[in-house]
């Protein structure tokens, strides 16, 4: 039983990282109905800026996190401005392929500078408490609380502020809302800034929890976060959070109670089963098809 609780804690940690990345996918999808496949790689860039800030600038944890979030948030806005905006009225797949291209570009560009996996120095003094046989590290607590805090903050921004209201309005109708005076481009930029900086925060936390980073780490994590977003119902912010925690739990539990090589297999098989019964995800609503 202690083993179970121990693994639950790990699941919460991994799930909160997935959820943070999934939020970026789902926000961009909600506004532009476009899958930003470069998002997983922005997560990777976030981890690398953590590395840069920590090693070259010697910053402690909080400034590192802030630097990484701001830089990657700006990078996300830049990518949207340069690569996605010219394609806003093009066929949807062109934008998706552009996103794949941007992702590959980020991976390989990072690879040129860091061809080998890098080690992240310890930024947080890790103390471990033992409560009823379950060992809890301060790092885990920080990751879980911080990501939950960020998610609550995002939820508040989207639900209570003017920017959030504009975002929801644009995801409702992209054609009419700009006519009512909502600046479309500004809101899209704000969405990208928010989404990618959350991804960067996840990158920082992932880099602290699993301190070896390489330029291709964003691919697998990115796809899994995307799957979390779909499980929760893509375009739905609370769905993405739930989906992230579900996927994290499933992965950790499969690895804990079955041979660990079955992890991907069971996770994806579960995803398929879920999509058969809830084809639009847990919180997603089916869109009526019109002829």
């Amino acid at each position: 039983m202690t083993y179970f609780f121990q693994q639950s804690l790990n699941a919460l940690q991994l799930g909160s990282i997935y959820a943070l990345i999934a939020l970026g996918y789902t926000m961009v999808y909600g506004i532009l109905t476009m899958i930003n496949f470069a998002h997983g790689d922005l997560f990777m860039v976030g981890a690398f800026f953590t590395f840069i800030a920590a090693v070259y600038l010697g910053l402690p944890f909080v400034p590192t996190l802030v630097v990484s979030m701001i830089v990657v948030g700006l990078l996300g806005v830049l990518i949207e401005r340069v690569a996605y905006r010219p394609l806003r009225n093009a066929p949807r797949v062109s934008a998706v392929i552009t996103a794949l291209g941007v992702g590959l570009f980020l991976e390989n560009f990072t690879l040129v500078f860091y061809p080998y996996p890098q080690h992240i120095p310890t930024l947080i003094q890790n103390t471990t408490w033992n409560i009823a046989g379950v060992s809890i590290s301060s790092l885990q607590i920080i990751i879980i609380l911080l990501s939950i805090g960020l998610m609550v903050m995002l939820d508040l921004i989207v639900r209570k502020t003017m920017v959030g209201m504009a975002m929801r309005a644009i995801s409702w109708d992209k054609a009419i809302i700009p006519l009512m005076g909502v600046p479309l481009n500004l809101i899209v930029s704000a969405t990208f800034a928010l989404g990618t900086s959350l991804g960067a925060a996840a990158g920082t936390m992932y880099a602290l929890a699993f301190p070896v980073i390489d330029p291709y780490m964003g691919i697998m994590i990115g796809w899994k976060a995307f799957i979390s977003a779909v499980v929760g119902g893509i375009g739905n912010i609370r769905g993405a959070m739930i989906g992230g925690f579900i996927l994290g739990t499933v992965e950790i539990m499969v690895a804990a109670f079955m041979p660990s090589t079955y992890r991907d297999f069971v996770a994806f098989a579960l995803l398929l089963v879920l999509l058969i019964f809830r084809p639009y995800g847990i919180l997603g609503k089916p869109r009526p098809q019109k002829v």
Binding site: P86, L87, I97, T98, G103, L104, L111, V112
Partner: peptide
Amino acid sequence: GMWRMVLMPLMLVLLMIFRPR
């Protein structure tokens, strides 16, 4: 060398922007 894999996606993105089809 390594820059090849940087140039390739860059060209893809440019192609998609200027000729989305």
